[in-house]
Amino acid sequence: MLKKLAAAFGLVMVCVSAWALTDKQMAEVESRIQPAGKVCLQGDNTCGAAVASVGGAPKSGEDVYKGSCQGCHASGAGGAPKVGDVADWGKRAEQGVDTLHKHAIEGFNNIGMMPPKGLCMSCSDEEVMAAVDYMLENSK
């Protein structure tokens, strides 16, 4: 019985000590338990000014190729034409560069599969077109 009473007293003291925080200590606790971020909808001005996205300069065709395209176009995975394979790219080049750009941006499923933008959703259309141009240039 004495152990239970001592445990109950200890629990009460711990609970009371939480209310005995100074204003400074309470402010420190509140700052540590703040949410990591806020969700603001367009037109909601309570979150502060809009922040521009970090993007930097456009990526070169080679950068896009190395970052997103070479996984398939270096090995021929999924029927992708290999960079440097003149015959494979020659057939495709006959369709015209506009068609190749369109297939790269929108995706193409014929023999194998070309997902939209080669799954580089952070790439602009211009960057994807530059990657196609890079692959064509290196497959002559």
Rank of each mutant, 00 (worst) to 15 (best):
V12P: 07
T22F: 03
T99C: 06
A50D: 13
A20L: 15
E94H: 11
A27E: 11
H73Y: 02
W89I: 01
D85L: 03
R92P: 07
G107I: 05
V54A: 10
F108R: 04
C123K: 00
K82H: 04
C40I: 10
A7P: 08
P115R: 01
A50K: 12
L136K: 09
S60R: 03
D133E: 09
A131Y: 00
H101R: 09
S75Q: 08
G118E: 01
V29W: 02
A93F: 15
V64M: 04
K82Y: 01
V39I: 13
C15I: 14
K3Y: 09
R32D: 02
S17I: 07
G37E: 05
K59A: 02
L5W: 15
A6N: 08
Q95E: 13
K4W: 14
I33Q: 05
L41Y: 12
E30N: 09
G48W: 03
S53C: 11
M135Q: 03
E62V: 07
C15E: 12
E126D: 10
P115Q: 03
A57N: 11
V132M: 01
R92V: 12
L100A: 01
A130P: 00
E28N: 10
G118T: 02
C40M: 07
M114L: 07
G118I: 03
I111V: 15
F9N: 14
Q42R: 08
D133V: 03
A20H: 10
A36K: 07
G107D: 02
D63V: 01
S124N: 02
G56A: 01
G71D: 03
K66W: 08
E127N: 03
K102I: 09
A27R: 05
C69S: 03
V86S: 06
M13G: 10
A8L: 14
L136A: 05
K140V: 15
V16D: 12
E126V: 03
F9H: 12
K102N: 11
N110P: 04
L100K: 00
Q70N: 11
K140N: 11
L5H: 14
D23T: 12
A8W: 13
K91V: 10
V64F: 00
V97T: 11
S124M: 02
S139G: 04
L136E: 06
P81H: 02
C69Y: 00
S31G: 05
A50W: 13
D125I: 03
